[in-house]
Simulated assay, not measured.
Amino acid sequence: MALNSVNTNFGAMVALQNLNKTNSDLQVTQNRINTGLKVGSAKDNGSAYAIAQGQRSEISALNAVQESLSRNQSVVDVALSAGESISDQLSQLKEKALAASDTTLNTSSRNALNEDFKAIRDQIAKTVSNASFNGVNLLDGSKATITALANASGGGLTVAGQKLTVGGTGSAITLSAAGEIDTLTKATAAIATLTTSINNVSASLAKLGTASKSLSNHTSFIGKLQDSLEAGVGNIVDADLAKESAKLQALQTKQQLGVQALSIANQSTSTVLSLFR
């Protein structure tokens, strides 16, 4: 026979314990639905939280890598565009030099060609000086190399500068900064010089083009890597909202039943009073 006592209501204690457990589970479920996370802090799951935080740090670091790659690709692309213009200008210079090598030209005609030649020659210098992005110029010889971040550990992708100045030491353009075609001899010599310069510039453009493609490919890879890492973090910490929603309804029902059970248990001691009537 169960003991009836006004000092100890065992049934009420059990009902209260169960109700507290239901309320605790309900709070956890509501928090998961509100945040969308099953692991929102280290208290929820210490090891999973530590892994997720490590991966989040990796993802944040890769944002800096993306920015570095994009910035350096812009530097290379600006240099590439300027280099293509210079290549076109060299072709125009060769055309002028070839025209000036015609032995039937009179002095006046050759001088006119020479003026065009000098204007185009000087334009190359302007093109080189303007081939700058974010203060970095890959065509004027000021930068032997640039290095873009390649990973979260600080590794880099290096791009070599290509010197395309007119008359500069080590430049791909062997034409003198004072080069002219005002005589037949100078015009004939300029043809060979410009042919060499055009070939050299083409080789430089090929290197810049390859570098730009490499940076672009690596940028795409880093983007895919970030997506994969984010998906991995989601698998670790994200809550299944459909499952949590169903669990919420069950816990709310249990909560209501627990309140009723506690109320019934609290009324059980009142039966003792009937014994004294």
Rank of each mutant, 00 (worst) to 15 (best):
S74T: 15
L98F: 01
L80W: 08
N134S: 15
F276T: 02
T158I: 02
S263H: 11
K94W: 06
G258L: 08
G46Q: 14
E230S: 15
A206E: 04
N18C: 09
L113I: 00
A250M: 06
A261M: 02
A144W: 04
E230A: 15
G36I: 03
N31K: 12
K247F: 10
I181Q: 04
I33S: 05
A160R: 13
R71V: 03
L16G: 04
N217C: 00
E244W: 01
K207F: 01
L229V: 13
I264S: 12
S270R: 13
Q226I: 08
G54D: 06
M1Y: 01
K118W: 14
A79S: 14
M1L: 05
N266W: 07
A189G: 11
L225K: 14
A2Y: 09
T104L: 06
V128Q: 00
L105H: 08
D240Q: 02
L175A: 11
T174N: 07
K118G: 09
R121K: 14
L80P: 01
N106Q: 11
A190D: 02
A187S: 10
G258W: 09
T147H: 04
Q55F: 05
V259T: 12
A100Q: 07
S270N: 15
Q55G: 04
G179S: 13
S220R: 02
A100I: 07
G234I: 06
A97I: 08
L16M: 11
G179R: 05
S24L: 12
S153Y: 14
T29Q: 01
Q226S: 12
S263P: 10
T196C: 02
S228A: 13
F221Q: 11
G170N: 13
S216F: 11
G141S: 07
Q73N: 12
L241A: 07
I198N: 10
I86W: 03
N9Y: 04
I124T: 00
G170T: 11
V75S: 04
V28H: 03
S228M: 06
K21Y: 14
K126L: 05
Q17E: 13
V201T: 11
L273G: 06
K243T: 01
S171A: 06
L26I: 03
V78D: 05
S176V: 01
D102Y: 03
A178C: 02
L273N: 10
A119T: 15
D88S: 14
L138K: 08
S270L: 14
E67G: 12
T185W: 09
K254Y: 07
F133V: 00
